Amino acid sequence: MDEQTGTNNNCKESAGSSICEVLQILGAKWAFLVLEELLKGPQRFNQLQRNVSIVKTQSLTDTLRHLVNNGLVLRKVFPTVPVTVEYSLTEKGKDFQTALLEMDKWVQKWGNPALAGQTSVQSS
């Protein structure tokens, strides 16, 4: 496991595996959480950081950078003083909502009953 990105280096050896391809595209272990949060709409970095407070600042920065580089998240810079940066999902990122909804269904059925209902994917 690569500590910086949270990706599994063994996936590089498993050429052709669709799960490994998904993990390479999503990258960091916090990507699912960030994508779920951005499904609610565009957010500035500090707002996103508050909403996913479990994620440390550097990890959030790395995750966003990876998602931007892989075309799932759009980083828009506004020429204000200080500079304002807003993150939103691209069409590719929005399309991942289907997978998140299926994961949510799976957790509802098989997840820890003590945690049930604490998180759910927003449908739009």
Rank of each mutant, 00 (worst) to 15 (best):
M1T: 07
D2Y: 05
E3M: 11
E3D: 15
Q4G: 02
T5R: 02
G6V: 03
N8F: 02
N9S: 10
N10F: 02
N10M: 07
N10S: 12
N10P: 00
N10I: 07
K12F: 05
S14N: 15
S14F: 11
A15Q: 13
S18W: 09
I19N: 07
C20K: 02
L23P: 01
L23S: 03
Q24Y: 01
Q24K: 06
L26M: 12
L26H: 04
L26P: 01
A28R: 08
A28E: 05
A28Y: 02
W30I: 02
A31H: 00
A31V: 01
L33V: 11
E37N: 13
L38W: 05
L39T: 09
L39H: 10
G41N: 05
P42D: 10
P42S: 13
Q43T: 08
Q47D: 12
L48T: 09
L48R: 04
R50Q: 14
N51R: 09
N51A: 11
N51E: 14
V52L: 03
V55K: 00
T57A: 11
Q58K: 15
L60G: 07
T61V: 12
D62C: 06
L64I: 10
L64D: 06
R65L: 11
V68A: 07
V68S: 05
V68W: 01
N70D: 00
N70L: 00
L72P: 03
V73A: 05
V73G: 04
R75Q: 15
K76A: 12
K76W: 08
V77K: 11
V77T: 15
P79F: 03
P79A: 11
P79H: 06
V81C: 07
V81L: 12
V83E: 14
V83Y: 05
V83H: 06
T84Y: 07
V85E: 15
E86V: 15
E86L: 10
S88W: 01
K92N: 12
K92C: 04
K94V: 10
K94T: 12
Q97V: 10
Q97Y: 04
A99H: 08
L100I: 08
M103K: 06
D104A: 09
K105P: 00
W106E: 08
K109P: 01
K109I: 09
W110T: 10
W110K: 12
W110Y: 15
N112P: 01
N112H: 06
A114D: 15
L115V: 06
L115E: 14
L115Y: 08
A116F: 07
A116D: 08
A116G: 04
G117L: 09
Q118E: 13
S120L: 04
V121R: 05
Q122H: 13
Q122Y: 12
S123K: 14
S124D: 12
